[in-house]
Amino acid sequence: MAASLASKWSRVGRSLLGGLGNNLSGLSSTSHEMASGNFLSQQRTFIQMRTVLKVVDNSGAKTVMCIQPLKGRKVARLGDTIVASVKEAMPTGKVKKGQVVHAVVVRAAMQHGRFDGSEVRFDDNAVVLVNKAGEPTGTRVFGPVPHELRRKKHVSILTLAEHLA
């Protein structure tokens, strides 16, 4: 609880340029809390057919499986849209298990090159469900999302997001 509050506070100073702070203070306070073991087990490859992804919105789906990256491609990366099949869903949600949905990859464990030449990498593979027009199905987005979504014309996901990275 305290951690989430702290991260909310630190959000104030963040800009879209990737100029997001911490570091010196991070060294003193967080050297013991290294990244969780979770991301090490996450496969760091492209998102392709049969990749299972976490759903980070309140549409009701929990996990989806990629069945086709859009634009007739074989693989998807951070910010790309995919067609997915809902594998796990809440009984009260908007989407049902087995439904075929469109989704935007908002976090990818595989590193993604930024426009300035640096790279960004996330803990897990996560998506936000959208309709065919690209509007999000849910009303909330959890966790950090990259600012590259703006380039991909997904500003509505950005506005719903908790954190920008």
Partner: peptide
């Protein structure tokens, strides 16, 4: 342009260099 500090060695990270890892609690 902002010059960041490397989390590990504290050296300066110039624009376009290096990699950043975003943890699920949004710590960079």
């Amino acid at each position: 342009m902002r010059l960041e500090k490397c989390w590990f060695c504290s050296s300066t990270v110039y624009p376009g260099h290096g990699i950043q890892f975003v943890r699920n609690d949004a710590k960079i």
